[in-house]
Amino acid sequence: MKIPSQRDLRAALLWAIVMLAAVGLSSNVLLRTVLVAPMVFFVSGHAMLRAIGIKTSSLSEHLAYAVGASLVIGISGGFILNAAGLLTPLGWASWFCAITVAAALVAGRRSDAPDLPPWPGSVPVRVWQGTAMAAALLLASGAYALAVHDEATYRQFNYTAFWILPPASGGPARMTVGVRSAETNTQRLDLEINLDGQPFAVFRSLTLAPGETWSREIQIPISATSQRADARLYRPDDNRLYRSVSTLVPRR
């Protein structure tokens, strides 16, 4: 069985235009992916093969060459769009659409284009076979979902991050101090800040649940010489120094 010679080209034209419209008008990732993936990996290359008039003897050969031609179109598009300053979603959509439309038009005008390869004969699939394949697909998808869940939830290191940041250059005279808990239990912490060795600020009994972040911007006096701010984090439960950070406050 051979495919009628023009139907595939009309389908490619239509696909290209719908893809361009979807990229231009929709922000739905799923819709765009469904339309874009075949265009980027197959449709544009298929139209190009038809335009050049490449002879293929089997469907697998045609599919492989079409993917290859699509990759070529994508790569060359990168250089051309870069030169034009159009490496944007619409730039890319226009490129694939333009190439597909042009190739389909050229292929449609060819009188000596080779026929498309024959489709392989249909393979009868019995109920149990179809069920087994569907179950396999579900199982593999489920296994992947399990892997994603495990990756997202498992952590080997539990920690409390503590930081102090100097005022941004040219910004207000405020330094930032922060604590983030990546522990398994809620933490209670005391925080002390010294400026050039003198007590400057104290925060008692900060309570942080796992995953929680506490931060403050603290107004500081800017002097003619640079100062050193030290921040210390204590655990009241065992009254020991837990973390210590410092920063240099730039001079006026």
């Binding site: 076979q129 179809g130 394949m133 296994a143 992947y144």
Partner: peptide, 21 residues
């Protein structure tokens, strides 16, 4: 094409991937 084999191999491979995960 022997679909019995293909179906059985798909199922085996899926179980295998679950064990790998």
């Amino acid at each position: 094409v022997n679909c019995d084999w293909i179906a059985a191999l798909c199922l085996t491979a899926a179980v295998a991937l679950l064990l790998v995960v």
